[in-house]
Amino acid sequence: MNYYLRRTVRIPLTILAVATFTFGLIRLLPGGPFTQLRIQLIRQGVPAEQVNARIEALQNIRPDAPLWQQYLDYLIGVAQLDLGRSISLNAPVIEILARALPWTVFLVVTSTVLMFVIGVLIGAIQAYKEGSRFDKVASGSSIFLMAVPYYIFAVLFLFFLSFQLNLFPTGNAVERGIEASLSAEYFLSVLHHAALPIIAFTIGGVGSTALNMRGNGIQVLGEEYVEVARLRGLPDSRIATKYVAKNAILPMYTGLLLLIGFRLGGTVVLEQIFSYPGLGYYLISAVNANDYPLMMGCFLVITVTLVIAVYIADLTYGLIDPRISAGDSDGY
């Protein structure tokens, strides 16, 4: 139990560190966001005496207050989920993020799980048939898939399947005019729009997962306990699932949830290509529009999601691998 407690206590501490980092980063940026903001506001014709007040409203920060005061204000704002107001979209940052985040999470989680499942299956077959023709072809393809960045696939899909063949839409998460509801029409539309981004994002990761699984699988197949299990006459199906698969996937499991967090950042390019209204899409537009509050918000959300993913990974790892819950991990 102490293991879980220890991990839980670490969460708020990590988030605090991340928020501090975001705050510091913004202050340290060359030129500084406030200079930028001030210039912008003055250009918009805001009277000079009102500029500080406007900045305060936008950023939750009083630019003339001492640093510690600004820091505290910012933290209190974050704790109250008040991340300021977006300059370019003129809406509360938290609202924009709340709208965008589900789409991104949907993309990332679906594609990562797909990638993991497909990769593990291919890798497991490769490990069992080590040295066969299938193994060689699959290894070659995996290396090819690892070498080509996912956005190349994205662009190719978009060009051929959407623009040339008109099979898929070229933007948005759902058909215009369809209300969010539990209807089949809505779900089909969502899937139709998400299909290409998900496939493109999945293909890029399958290669490394398969190679990883192949390596682990071959190692586990060489373990003595697999040999003993065979001698004990256990059916091959049981050995494949309980002995080989479980022990081979285990070390990849933490990697999987880490990957989900990591791939959140990868959506920036993906969503831009498919004009998919997720977190990455807004992050790019925020950067382009010098919209610092929105940028900070996106940054914070992505890191917090990463922290939570790692946390879930650590917690559930203990349930899957008995050696972890004891608090010592001499096995791995």
């Binding site: 003595e224 306990y225 006459g233 256990l234 059916p235 309980k242 022990n247 691998d321 008995p322 050696r323």
Partner: peptide, 22 residues
Amino acid sequence: GAMSSFNPTMKVGSHFKETLRT
């Protein structure tokens, strides 16, 4: 190596049971 003869993610008792069942 007894350590490497048991499946590290399975209880010792399950090893006995699955052997009997098989």
